[in-house]
Design a protein around this nucleic acid. Sequence first.
DNA 1: TGCGCGATTCTC
DNA 2: AGAATCGCGCAT
Length: 180
Amino acid sequence: MTRVLKRSFYERDTVTVARELLGRTLCRRLDSGKILRARIAETEAYDGFEDRASHAHKGVTVRNKVMFGAPGRSYVYLCYGVHWLLNLTTREVGYPAAVLIRGVEGVTGPGRLTKHLQVDKRFNELPLTRVAGLWVEEAEVVPDADEISATPRVGVDYAGERWAAMPWRFVWKASQGLHR
DNA sequence: TGCGCGATTCTC
DNA sequence: AGAATCGCGCAT
């Protein structure tokens, strides 16, 4: 039987969680009852107070407060006034961190992904459970280390040399269907 | 109360 | 290369 990743999975080192989410299945139950499932193929870690690429680096705000809260919740925000971006919170309460889901099998791009799964601000701050309609399931097979590539994060040049260069983007190379 | 800007994507 | 499009964050 499928197993839903629980809070303890997320209440760990953010970079580790970002890497280990690859291959796991992102699930969304629509209002119609239909369930969409897609294996996670691309993630990025945003971790702590010092990470200048993270929304949290200047402290708590209305937008980013979810990052400071409980692990295993969704952090959804509007990017460029156009796209909803989905993050999963990590680490203990009080420590700001989250993993951005950048792509799943068949759907590349954080904005395209939320459109496909019909995720928007209604999901902000919800726990990742079946009841909430958005959750992640354990994988039968997870990628081997040599199937994962780590690169700098996308679109964070504003963060300065050190943080922009941090290899916190993870891509599952073996995943098929990373297409537009 | 106002203003500038993005963890993007699509079209030209 | 440029537009779309708007909530947020910070200054005023």
